[in-house]
Amino acid sequence: MSEVRLQIDGKEVRAEEGATILETARAAGIEIPTLCLHEALEPFGGCRLCVVEVEAGGWSRLVVSCVYTVAEGLVVRTRNKKIDRTRKMLLELLLAHAPDSPPLQELAAEYGADRDRFGQETSFCVHCGLCVRYCAEVKGLHAVGFIDRGIRKEISFLPEIAAKECRDCMECFPLCPTSYLQAAFVLVEAFTSR
């Protein structure tokens, strides 16, 4: 693996080819917010909070740093007006679902996001997919999955698998940035133990 040199927030850094901007920035002590990222899981690219601006060959654009890989001579900015504006809006959209989520509140304070900008949604789930992906990728159980698409997308436990596997595992519970997951499971459990 060869090494590439790039610039993040004005700082010259080196990284292995194939590394993501996010990994490289964090190694250099530059923090980028994330929600759907987990070190044991494949990058998902869903929450988009880790957007950064990249500049190469005279053009610049926003990319998500959890999947965008480094390249020689790349110039990266992790904060500017546009990035902050984007993160603020993303947070406001998420807060409509989970206004009391601690990690979201923390980020909201940082980016000045208004938790009441949009009306409260009925579902708490922010679709980070951590539970679904952890159960599939780490545990190989597939006890929880997505259903539907678009604005109707939800997560859902499969009662027949959950009844067998979940009570002894529950490793996904602490991953959930809202309280939604636990609620969903409790519901299924109540339903299946009837």
């Binding site: 869903g46 929450c47 988009r48 909070l49 809006m89 993303l90 678009g150 604005i151 109707r152």
Partner: peptide, 22 residues
């Protein structure tokens, strides 16, 4: 149309379109 046809994976598309539609 797009709120129903979006795959629902990323926040801007799923949530942004939801609010735009509203």
């Amino acid at each position: 149309f797009l709120t129903e046809e979006s795959c629902g994976k990323c926040v801007p598309c799923r949530e942004g379109l939801r609010q735009m539609h509203r």
